[in-house]
Computed example of a mutant assay.
Amino acid sequence: MPDNGENRIVLAITGASGAIYAIRLLDALCRSDLEIHLTISPSGAAVIGEETGLAVDVRKPNLIELISHVPKWSSVAKPDAAKLETAISQRVRFHQYDDYMTPIASGSFRTRAMVVCPCSGSTLSGIARAASTNLVQRAAEVHLKEHRKLVLVPRETPLSSIALENMHRLSVAGAVLLPAMPGWYHGVDSLDSLVDFVVSRILDQLQIDNSMIARWGE
């Protein structure tokens, strides 16, 4: 039976603040049984370096080091190194940000969904204009034109009228705008719980079961 792409998730990391959301999301995806197609923009790598101290090579990143990163303020346990290495080797496919010959640049390569987390303002603008000036924007355009789920996770405040217009335009086009705005109603007791709130909501959009937060009414 041909693969309908339901086991594939595209994740793009761009240059907005909030690298920890991307790291925690990538860790959660690696714990699933899905095939992950990852790309990181140069600005995304720069922000990761600024916020975590990790040097990320956008041509060949050390994914074990990236996913295993735990901030000093966090009490989350590091992933099991052996299991993580196995998951990465078997199910993570890395695509360079300027390589248009990769599968995720084509609508014929079927996927379940794409997430841009965090999503910078320039990336938001590029996707809204169908600019396709890099692989992130091109892959996002593919998901819009093929009517597949596209989840954008901006992290910016305050928002300009232009950014709001871009968000509205993308929402009308079918994208899900999921700002990194954690709720406070789920028994917040740490910074981890605020990060997990956002990651959990992203996973919900991808239809990936998770118990990262206490759900309202459950």
Rank of each mutant, 00 (worst) to 15 (best):
D192Q: 04
N134D: 15
P154Y: 07
M167G: 10
P154A: 08
G183Y: 01
R169H: 10
P182V: 09
L144V: 01
L177G: 00
L150C: 10
S193T: 09
T157A: 14
A163F: 14
V172L: 13
A163T: 15
S125I: 04
E156W: 08
T123W: 03
E156I: 09
M181N: 03
S190A: 01
G174K: 06
S120G: 12
V115F: 12
S160K: 05
A131K: 14
S132F: 05
R129P: 05
S190F: 02
L164Q: 13
M167R: 04
R129L: 12
T157Q: 14
A173T: 07
S190L: 01
R129D: 06
A175D: 05
L178M: 09
L191A: 04
E141L: 10
A128Q: 05
E165Q: 14
A131Y: 07
L159E: 10
L170Y: 06
L178Q: 06
C117H: 06
V151F: 13
Y185S: 01
V188P: 03
N134G: 13
S171V: 03
S122E: 12
D189F: 06
K145H: 10
S125N: 14
D189C: 07
S161P: 04
P118H: 13
L194G: 02
S171G: 14
A131I: 04
M181H: 00
V136R: 02
A173E: 06
V142G: 06
Q137T: 08
M167E: 06
G121P: 07
E141D: 15
L159V: 14
L170A: 09
E156L: 08
S120P: 02
T133P: 04
K145P: 10
A180Q: 00
L177M: 15
S190Q: 00
V153A: 07
V188G: 04
E141K: 11
R155K: 15
A163Q: 15
Y185W: 04
G187F: 01
S161I: 12
L159R: 15
L150M: 06
V116D: 04
G174I: 14
P154L: 02
K145Q: 11
K145V: 07
L150P: 03
T133R: 15
G183V: 01
V151E: 02
A130M: 10
R169G: 11
A163D: 13
T133Q: 12
S125R: 13
G174M: 09
V176W: 07
R155V: 05
A131Q: 13
T123M: 08
V188H: 03
L164K: 11
V116G: 08
A131W: 04
K149W: 11
M167V: 06
S193L: 02
N166L: 05
S193M: 01
P158F: 08
L164F: 02
G174W: 08
L177K: 07
P182F: 05
A163W: 05
V195L: 00
H143N: 15
N166D: 12
A180E: 00
I162G: 03
R155Y: 10
C119E: 07
I162P: 01
P154V: 02
A128D: 05
